[in-house]
Amino acid sequence: MARPVIEAPPTTPAGTWLEGEELARRAAARTRRKRLALLVAGWAAMLGIWQVAAYYLPFGTLPNPLEVSVEMWEIVASGALVSDFLASVLKTFAGFGVAVLIGAPVGYLMGRYGYWRAFFLDGVTVAGTIPALTYAVLSLIIFGLSNLGPVLAVALVSTPYVALNVAEGIRGVDQNLVKMSQAFGRSPQQIRREVFIPTIVPYLFAAVRMSFAVAWKVEALTEVFGGTNGVGFQIRTRYQLFDITGVIAWMALFIVFMLLIERLLLRKLEQRVLAWRPEERAAR
């Protein structure tokens, strides 16, 4: 992918394949260092603007970064973080589980058979276009004050992503590999395991990462309105107490936590599973 500003300069050509791999690794490390520097600069600018805004706004409207970080530390130290985050994360992943269980078979049918595609396509497209907020409200109406609301909201938001991506993945299966497998007498099960599933996996990761960005926001939102625990619930409680510092602290912790899950957990898992792709090897 082209990242013009921080692209590494061209290096001397490699002699052997192993040398090439080594050069690529070194170039990648250089690129990583530059990227880190820019990242730090970006954060510093953001905190600076926040600090200035907190100073000039009327007292009590916006706490400054230090106050928020103290509050964040207190939340972490009190232990509330673990139980409420765990509740939110579990609900998000339960919703994902439902989305994969429903979306993957639907996507498989859509990718494999024209009739099923015709049957599902409009429904899935419409479901993917409905705003996430609508799903949150709908889930609340159905389940009221309960933990099932957020799960349903996440499932509804994520299912279309999963279905469409899996369908795309199945359609992207290299028919030449299927023919090769048949020519060598491989069974349908073997072809499914060795050709179809490995083709879908990158698409499934893309679906999960794409919907994760929306899903955790919907999950928190649903908790704000109708949760009995979790991060959204905590944000609502603080809001009712007019505790802006608490609201922002919880929100910031939530963002940090979800970014960690996305960057560390999902990304690392993807790198591991997709190690055969040249772009994954270069990034390692």
Partner: peptide, 24 residues
């Protein structure tokens, strides 16, 4: 038993060379 060589290699990109050969 039949063996095939195609115009293009037709190897599974997600399997190593050895695993590709063991697959068939």
């Amino acid at each position: 038993r039949l063996g095939y060589v195609f115009q293009d290699p037709r190897l599974l990109p997600w399997r190593t060379v050895r695993k590709n050969m063991l697959y068939v």
